[in-house]
Amino acid sequence: MARYGMALDYKNCINCKACEVACKEENGVLLGADKHRIWVGVKEIEGEYPLLDIVSSTFMPSQCQHCDDAPCEMVCPTHATYYDDNNVVRVDVDKCILCSYCMNACPYDARYVDDRTMTVDKCTFCSDTRLERGEVTTACQNTCPTKVRTFGDLDDPDSEISELLRTREHFSLKANLGTKPKLFYLT
């Protein structure tokens, strides 16, 4: 019983995509650019050579936000999308009928279709692989060269993530939508 979340020191990200590969290898995710549980947001640079705007080229590592008020969960007609015991947003492949309501509802575009099961898939916080084995880091956190991610229990005041969120300024994506993401970007 935990309330898992993740803090991202996103300024560290060098867009190497180790996290993408680690996630695919750990969780047996399909190949293909549109089959990612995790990705890095990039944007074409602004300005004209050589007067380019460095800050316009920020890399934004992202994945399912595991919202506390998840729109995907609310719209799912079969309750295939649910909160597990650790408050992780999960999809039950046996219940998913691929109506794709959740994919449209997700403001973060975190969901894609797994063509093998023809169900919706997305980041699980490695729940059925690493967490189930009792490991305490996710594959993406573990492999990252610049250690962008810190994963942990938000309900545990002594956890590293709680400490980070207490001591460092942070923001969440599209906070105005009231989805209450459990991914926090450290500034």
Partner: peptide
């Protein structure tokens, strides 16, 4: 919109193009 609030930029193309 997030990009706006972080860096004041325009849209972010999220996956590697």
């Amino acid at each position: 919109s997030v990009a706006m609030s972080i860096v004041g930029g325009s849209s972010i193309g999220v996956t590697n193009l």
